[in-house]
């Protein structure tokens, strides 16, 4: 199981990477692995939408499971990764890289204090088996 050392993680297995006023959001390697072969990604927000933390941003489906995706932080949607919508299998291949889901911007920065760092998330995953 891969865990990106510099990202923050939610209990719902989303990650967020913060660079100044920009944040990128995706799902973790653990999440893609437990979903197995992902066949569908729907992003239900649009560029310009302003989101509160924990707002639903879309759905990911595999053959046997479906998972709703929430943004771990608040912000305004600045970009959507249409590549992953067109090729959902990217999520299985590169969840921390190419298969990011959305980018957010925020003038006031991002509050990540409620999220786990890589170490805490590793333990959280191990506890779930």
């Amino acid at each position: 199981m891969n865990i990106h050392p510099n990202y923050f993680y939610s209990k719902n297995d989303e990650w967020v990477s913060v660079e100044g006023n920009k944040a990128t959001i995706g799902i973790s390697d653990y999440a893609q692995d437990s979903l197995s072969d992902i066949v569908f990604v729907e992003i239900s927000v649009s560029v310009g939408d302003s989101l509160a933390a924990e707002d639903n941003i879309g759905t990911i489906e595999s053959v046997k499971a479906a998972s709703d995706i929430y943004t771990p932080v608040a912000g305004t949607v600045s970009e959507i990764n249409n590549k992953v919508v067109d090729s959902p299998e990217l999520l299985n291949r590169d969840p921390f890289g190419e298969a990011w889901l959305i980018k957010l911007s925020s003038d006031t920065g991002f509050d990540t204090s409620h999220l786990m760092d890589a170490d805490a998330y590793r333990k959280y995953c191990e506890d779930r088996g």
Partner: peptide
Amino acid sequence: TLTAREQHIRREK
């Protein structure tokens, strides 16, 4: 196919 939409997987969703 597309069974992940259905109640036996998504339940209340």
